[in-house]
Structure formats: structure tokens, C-alpha cells
């Protein structure tokens, strides 16, 4: 369903991602883990062209593009098949919760206001925020903002939702509610690519875990393979450090 081949990305001559291949099947939850600065977020941002890779190929929901020659129209097409949930939520500050969810449906998908409203209510209910539809982002907690942002992503019915460290900016007591919403989304059959530092959550929710190190895919496999049975030295080192820190 989503296929990346030979993806390369560099910033000012520094290689950030090198020769990445990634396959995601429909309905799969794929989690990217690894040390900070190894390009997990960058990889995610390449999929919707918030970063432009130097080279590589992408196939997504029937689209086939070459990153090295991708144009404006193709970029828009690709973005309209994906949705992203950001670390800092990035809700539109000038719009209420429901307007945030409605806007892209009306502006990008040209739905009527009524259609967009109904769809938005449905998605806001799904994340448990039907009581906050008229609140501005400024009036919501971080966890609530992130759940609105999940509803916003769901509402455009993308092929895949990209979660970029969705709980990293949250106060610890708010992490749970957001993880619950993500789990809900995963159960509904949505295809998900998730960057996270919540290891136990990753282990529970993922169909596939990709361990990245120094801009490359070091190892990938089923969660138990990576978390329990990995014989990759770098994976073990990372996980050991992580568990040591958690204790």
C-alpha cells in the first residue's frame, strides 16, 4: 500500500537518511524507533513531502512518484492521501476544535459545510471530545489538542496517518488519553506509521517495528522480534539504555 524505495535525504550536504526501503501494508501499524537524531521524524516528513528527499521512489494508494522529479501537483496529490499528527499538535489557532476538523474537508476536499460538520462531529466523538467542539486550541489541554488533531487527521480519510512523536510534548498524566485514541484509530483498521519513544506502547500496538540508527534502517520485524529476540547489537544497546533509564 505504501512503498518507499532507495530514499535519500540530506540537509546542507549532511546525509540524514540513506537508502531507506519501507513497506507498509494496508491496515498495518508500523512503528519507527531508535535514538534521537537518527532520522525517524525526517523519514515520516518525507512521506508527505514536508522534507523533500534528494532521491527515491514512493508508491502510495495507486500513486507512483519519483522524489527527484516530483512537482507541485504531485506533492499535493501525495499530501492529500496522507495526514499527519504533529508532536506540537499544530492545531489552527484561529479555529475552534470543530473548525479545525472541518476546514480541510471543505477547503481541500470541497465537501459541503453540512457534510464536513457531520463527519467532524463523528470523529470528535471518537476521540471523546464532543463536549469541546467550540473551544479554541488555546482553551484545551495538550492531550485534548492532540486528540482534536487526531480527529482532524481521521476526518480527511487518508490512506495513512503519520504520527510524529504524538505524546512527547505532553505532561505525563495526559499521555494515556492520547495513546488510547491512537489505539482506537489502529483498531479501526487505519494504516499508521508512528514515531514514538513509548516503547511498551510500540510493542503492544505495532504490527511491525523498524529500528533506525544513523539514518538507516538497522533492523525491522515483528515487535517481539525486535524487543525480545533481536541479536542486532545496536538494537540491544538502544533498548538496554532505554530500559535502564525507565527504571
Amino acid at each position: 500500500m505504501l512503498n518507499l524505495r532507495n530514499l535519500n535525504l540530506s540537509f546542507h550536504g549532511n546525509k540524514v537518511l540513506e537508502d531507506i526501503d519501507l513497506e507498509v501494508k494496508k491496515g498495518e501499524v508500523v512503528t519507527l524507533i531508535g535514538p534521537s537524531g537518527t532520522g525517524k521524524t525526517s523519514l515520516l516528513r518525507c512521506i508527505n513531502l514536508l522534507e523533500k528527499p534528494d532521491s527515491g521512489f514512493i508508491s502510495l494508494g495507486g500513486l507512483d512518484y519519483d522524489f527527484s522529479s516530483i512537482d507541485k501537483k504531485e506533492t499535493l496529490n501525495l499530501r492529500r492521501k496522507t495526514a499527519m499528527v504533529f508532536q506540537q499538535y499544530n492545531l489552527f489557532k484561529n479555529k475552534t476544535a470543530i473548525e479545525n476538523v472541518m476546514d480541510a474537508q471543505m477547503v481541500v476536499q470541497k465537501k459541503s459545510k453540512k457534510e464536513a460538520y457531520e463527519k467532524s462531529m463523528e470523529e470528535l466523538k471518537r476521540v471523546g471530545l464532543e463536549a469541546k467542539v467550540d473551544a479554541y486550541p488555546n482553551q484545551l489541554s495538550g492531550g485534548q489538542q492532540q486528540r482534536v488533531s487526531i480527529a482532524r487527521a481521521l476526518a480527511v480519510e487518508p490512506e495513512v496517518i503519520l504520527f510524529d512523536e504524538p505524546t512527547s510534548a505532553l505532561d505525563p498524566e495526559l499521555v494515556g488519553e492520547v495513546l488510547k485514541s491512537i489505539e482506537e484509530v489502529a483498531k479501526s483498521g487505519m494504516t499508521i506509521i508512528l514515531v514514538t519513544h513509548e516503547m511498551s506502547f510500540a510493542q503492544d500496538i505495532s504490527d511491525k517495528v523498524v529500528f533506525m540508527d544513523k539514518g538507516q534502517v538497522a533492523e525491522s520485524g515483528r515487535p517481539e522480534q525486535i524487543f525480545k529476540e533481536s541479536d542486532n547489537a545496536r538494537t540491544q544497546q538502544f533498548l538496554n539504555k532505554f530500559y535502564a533509564a525507565a527504571q
Binding site: L76, Q88, N90, L91, K93, N94, V107, V108, R152, L162
Partner: peptide, 27 residues
């Protein structure tokens, strides 16, 4: 205006014009 506001609109497939008129200029 924070970069995140631009990125949120871009990630949803807004054209530059749509992003400016609906999200950025009102702010």
C-alpha cells in the same frame, strides 16, 4: 506565525493560496 501552522496546512494538502487565505492571514 509558527512554522507548525504552515506545516499543518501543507500536510493536509492545502495549496499555498488556500494556506495563506484560510490559516495564515487570519492569524
Amino acid at each position: 506565525i509558527e512554522k507548525g501552522q504552515h506545516e499543518a496546512a501543507e500536510s493536509l494538502g492545502y495549496t499555498r493560496f488556500q494556506k495563506l487565505t484560510k490559516i495564515i492571514i487570519p492569524q
